[in-house]
């Protein structure tokens, strides 16, 4: 197996995730796209771990999974709160930060 086949798979997933973050309007879908990005990172970490024969990549892949779980928890709680206040989770309607 080539190193590159895994890295390129990661790159493709990453870019699909980036597209999702930019294009999606629904907050839950944006969170899913972020999950895609995080998974592509994990694939890279593990590919390099195998290539270098070290356990560092595994450790950090686990950390990424844990952080992702935390992020989803808080993100969905925020989405829920926004929904409760505005009856909508469309991100383009949330422009309170407009300068």
């Amino acid at each position: 197996m080539l190193v590159n086949q895994f890295l390129m798979l990661g790159a493709v997933l990453f870019c699909i995730g980036v597209y999702g973050v930019i294009a999606r309007r629904n907050a839950v879908l944006v969170l899913m796209s972020i999950e895609l990005i995080l998974n592509s990172v994990n694939i890279n970490l593990l590919a390099f771990a195998l290539r270098n024969g070290s356990a560092d990549g595994h450790t950090f892949a686990l950390y990424v999974i844990a952080v992702a779980a935390a992020e989803v928890g808080v993100g969905l709680a925020m989405v829920l709160l926004v929904y409760r206040n505005r009856k909508s989770i469309a991100l383009d309607e949330l422009a309170e930060m407009k300068g």
Partner: peptide, 12 residues
């Protein structure tokens, strides 16, 4: 001001 649209997607 236009840069600070407040839209998350645009920031992304």
């Amino acid at each position: 001001r236009p840069v600070q649209s407040g839209k998350v997607n645009q920031y992304g």
